[in-house]
């Protein structure tokens, strides 16, 4: 049996709302450690991997590891029907592995709403990616910035063109674009420390200068999720997709991997 409860408007609900513009269907894996989700956008440009440790929920129980495909858009629609103050329970029983049950309970416990959502096949939405601790050393540059700043950069650049070039070297982290009507270049002078301050842009890992070109449509989607958190961590590599990460509590995370644009 798997069962988690959360208050309406909790972080999981906010994140599911924010990923909808990219993702319809997701693979969800539950273990005693927590709730993880992987999804691929229809164009196979963005892969999303998130892990919510059990302690971020109001209550969490998972007797046996389970894996299921969930139509996230339908699930979010159902969750939207909850009222302020409701406690939301998501449950899968061992007897029935065809659907999940979502329950809303009013704060005074006088009203309960039960809904069943059919599970779907989402196996084609999986990718084989290495453990993050193995991948992290492959990134040439990793920096952190306030997520509101990241969103602002993406919005400012998308006025001019569909693409952004992110360049990182020891001295500067820049976001730039060039279009028919002009160009924009936003430069940040980074702090260099392992312990980033919340309000600043910090270069945490640097193994050599690197630049990548990315489609701003996808970047804006990543920025949308990141604004639920104070800081966003961005990793660049010429051999891997761009990585955008937000931390959830001590061990949790949301990671987006975004395939860059390449010159042919």
């Amino acid at each position: 049996m798997f069962e988690l409860t959360m208050a309406k408007g909790s972080i999981l609900q906010g994140v599911l709302e924010a990923i909808l513009d990219l993702v319809n269907v997701a693979n969800v894996d539950c273990s005693s450690k927590g709730f993880s989700l992987q999804a691929l956008d229809t164009e196979h440009v963005v892969f999303l991997s998130l892990f919510f440790p059990s302690e971020v929920f109001r209550s969490y129980r998972c007797d046996e590891d389970c894996s299921m495909g969930i139509a996230i858009a339908d699930m979010v629609d159902l969750l939207r029907a909850s009222n302020d103050g409701d406690i939301i329970t998501i449950k899968v029983t061992d007897q029935n592995f065809e659907d999940i049950t979502i329950t809303f309970e009013s704060p005074d416990k006088t009203k309960t709403t039960d809904m069943d959502l059919q599970l779907v096949d989402a196996r084609s939405h999986r990718l084989k990616i290495s453990e993050w601790h193995d991948m992290e050393s492959e990134y040439q540059a990793i920096f952190c910035m306030p997520s509101a700043q990241f969103m602002l950069n993406c919005k400012s650049l998308s006025v001019i063109d569909d693409d952004v070039v992110i360049r990182v070297n020891e001295e500067v982290i820049s976001f730039s674009t060039k279009g028919k009507s002009g160009c924009v270049n936003i430069s940040h002078v980074p702090n260099k420390t392992d312990n980033p301050e919340k309000a600043s842009v910090t270069l945490t890992h640097m193994r050599g200068p690197v630049s990548l070109t990315l489609n701003l449509r996808y970047m804006k989607s990543c920025a949308k999720v990141s604004t639920l958190f104070d800081q966003v961590k961005i990793g660049l590599s010429t051999k891997l997709p761009l990585m955008v990460e937000c931390k959830i509590a001590e061990k949790g995370y949301i990671r987006y991997f975004v395939a860059p644009k390449i010159t042919e």
Binding site: H44, L127, K128, L240, A259, K261, I262, T263, E264
Partner: peptide, 14 residues
């Protein structure tokens, strides 16, 4: 010409 790459160029599908 700049072209959008796909994740399958970086990761294997399962």
């Amino acid at each position: 010409v700049r072209k959008q790459s796909q994740l399958t160029a970086f990761f294997a599908s399962t």
